[in-house]
Design a protein around this nucleic acid. Structure first.
Length: 585
RNA sequence: GGGCUCAUAGCUCAGCGGAUAGAGCAACGGCCUUCUAAGCCGUGGGUCGGGGGUUCGAUUCCCUCUGGGCUCACCA
């Protein structure tokens, strides 16, 4: 617990220790029940006395009143303690609180909320994992954006992170592509737009195969040849793979994503015989309906197929092989799979097989699922052509952003160059999309609508980015007059006693906690909400109070420091979500 | 049928067993000669799906019912 807010003072702990000294109860238990009241008017922290009623044989309000009088002159960081009903409400000294938080936030800088608790504990995050030769559509956006944020969050807490892109680069589909390319492939088109061309011939293959059954047979033969390492098939497969990766790289670059490892399914295929031997040696493998399976009745799960009845491998066997590989290679502390919830059962089976095979670390494997991206009335369907490519979505978002930038530039008479406008539009447009995927709990389905996706009002990516840019603008102006956040003395900072300043400080203070909760639940949206809260509180403060024209020099220095702290928190928060911030917009 | 998951404002969603259930969008009404109006302020809007139970206290935990979604052997 001490680790949690190491970047700043732990007021909750301090209150728990105060209570502990007066009641004789252990501070740890008390700390767990110290809560934050629903309204600020009720105080910064509260301690419900109801649970004490039984042991003390007194009414909760009486206990609260008694404790309040005892704690009245407790500590310098407290302004007052009030009994309200059965609650004991603690009001922190505004000056001490705001001053401490701002000073600590400035000292932490980009490492606000960061710790080293993960040092030496390698975390693997598998995410994105698109299929080679298939378009990168918005369904892949979810795992890509979510996974990136999860990886960054762990990194912030000191965990060494390995980002793995488990490419879908294996299977009979490649036999089909090889056949199709031989018959209808267009070299020039392939170079021009690889995935479009590969998709075209893939669709063509399926059309033709309806009339010509020999095509399927040939495809299987070609895939077999590929598996056996036949040179022509291998060369073609590698080419398709390389070209696809090149195209994916464009999207990854735009979103600032890089992987440590692109080992796809194909990489693990030759490790499967060893897996089969292992499972057989442990007596787990049995034949069922011609296939080799591991029964999981005791676990309450359906059997896991390891080898198909024709002896071929299947995704479960490849995932088992890859898990073993990861443990051997990285000795992971945690192995995270950012894959859609429809595959929840599959992962439960894979983990159960590993556990059954005697690998205790199976418990360190986690499936981080997420909902479907769909239209209001129907599912996304590649076959029906009812998909939205991520490229297309990003382009729309960037274009809309550019319009707003141009309009504002004219309105405000700013001097943004063509180059800067393009760069800002790119970052804001992409950030808007990324934010949409990290706004709510990941289990929820996302109903796609252009209208909502391109709405930049209210709690959105652009809102957070705008707030940052606004703060930076103030700081730039201050700097021109020679002012900087470092000028503020502790006495200056302690003078920020206003409601709006305190509200901002409270949200800043919760930053580290939000990062922790996000990591514990593998839920970046918990940080998204904190970032949004900080932005909202700062905008309110910004509208109500003047920063550069504060009533006096000391308060001005303090407010500049507060603004700097907010900017740092916003930039760091956005970065942990995988979103870039801009200095102007 | 089994498993998992969800049901909260017109819409999209938050709500760690606790105080008067909150945001954003949409609607309506205000605020730019002053630090970026992608902003701020205000108003209206709720049987927290239904019914039981546990508890001093349940939107939150348990059971049950209803209604969605996903999934249940050789695709991934």
């Amino acid at each position: 617990m001490d680790e949690r807010r190491r970047w700043s003072m732990d007021f909750r702990r301090a209150i728990a220790e105060l209570l502990s000294a007066r009641t004789g109860l252990p501070a740890d238990t008390l700390e767990a029940s110290v809560e934050v009241p629903p309204q600020f008017e009720l105080g910064d922290y509260a301690f419900p006395c109801f649970p004490l009623a039984k042991t003390l044989r007194k009414a909760p309000p009486a206990i609260a009143a008694e404790l309040a009088s005892k704690l009245a002159e407790g500590a310098p960081f407290l302004d007052r303690v009030q009994a309200v009903g059965g609650y004991l409400n603690f009001f922190l000294d505004r000056g001490v609180f705001v001053g401490t938080v701002v000073a600590d936030a400035l000292a932490a800088g980009p490492r606000i909320g960061a710790t080293e608790e993960g040092a030496g504990k390698t975390v693997i995050v598998e995410f994105s994992s698109p299929n080679i030769a298939k378009p990168f559509h918005i369904g892949h956006a979810f795992t890509t954006i979510l996974g990136q944020s999860v990886a960054k969050l762990y990194t912030h807490l000191g965990y060494p992170v390995v980002r793995m892109n488990h490419l879908g680069d294996y299977g009979t589909q490649f036999g089909k592509l090889i056949v199709a390319y031989g018959r209808w492939g267009d070299e020039a088109a392939l170079l021009e737009a690889p995935i479009r061309e590969l998709l075209r011939i893939y669709v063509k293959f399926h059309d033709e195969a309806k009339a010509d059954l020999a095509l399927e047979t040939e495809a299987r033969a070609r895939f077999l040849a590929l598996e056996e390492g036949n040179a022509p098939e291998m060369a073609l497969w590698k080419r398709f793979r390389d070209l696809s990766l090149l195209e994916f790289a464009r999207v990854y670059d735009r979103m600032g994503i890089a992987f440590d490892n692109y080992n796809g399914e194909s990489y693990y295929s030759d490790r499967i015989p060893a897996v089969v031997d292992l499972l057989r040696a442990k007596g787990l493998l049995e034949e069922s309906e011609g296939a080799q399976v591991v029964k999981l009745d005791e676990e309450g799960l359906p059997p896991c197929i390891v080898l198909k009845s024709d002896g071929a491998t299947i995704y479960a066997s490849r995932d088992i092989a890859s898990a073993l590989y990861r443990k051997e290679t990285y000795g992971f502390y945690k192995n995270i799979y950012v894959v859609g919830t429809p595959q929840a059962l599959h992962f439960r089976q894979v983990f159960a097989v590993l556990k059954k095979a005697g690998f205790a670390w199976a418990d360190d494997c986690v499936h981080v699922g997420f909902g479907l991206v769909k239209f209001a009335d129907r599912k996304l369907s590649t076959r029906a052509g009812e998909v939205i490519f991520l490229d297309e979505l990003l382009a729309e978002s960037v274009a809309k952003t550019r319009e707003i930038i141009d309009r504002n530039a004219e309105l405000r008479g700013t001097d943004m160059s063509e180059e800067e406008r393009a760069e800002v539009a790119e970052k804001v447009g992409i950030g808007a999309v990324q934010y949409m995927f990290l706004r709510n709990g990941r289990d929820r389905d996302i109903v796609f609508s252009w209208e909502e996706m391109l709405d930049f009002d209210g709690e959105t990516g652009p809102y957070a980015m705008y707030t940052y840019a606004r703060g930076r603008s103030v700081l730039r102006k201050g700097a021109l007059e020679g002012a900087s956040a470092a000028d503020a003395t502790p006495e200056d900072l302690a003078r920020m006693g206003g409601d709006d300043e305190a509200a901002v400080a409270r949200l800043l203070y919760g930053f580290g906690d939000a990062v922790h909760r996000a990591v514990e639940a593998n839920e970046p949206f918990l940080l998204t909400r904190q970032v949004a809260g900080i932005a909202r509180a700062f905008n309110k403060f910004y509208n109500n109070e003047s920063i550069l024209s504060a009533p006096d020099a000391g308060l001005r220095r303090a407010r500049i420091a507060l603004t700097e702290a907010v900017c740092t928190a916003l930039k760091t928060g956005l970065d942990l979500l995988g979103i870039a911030a801009v200095e102007r917009m």
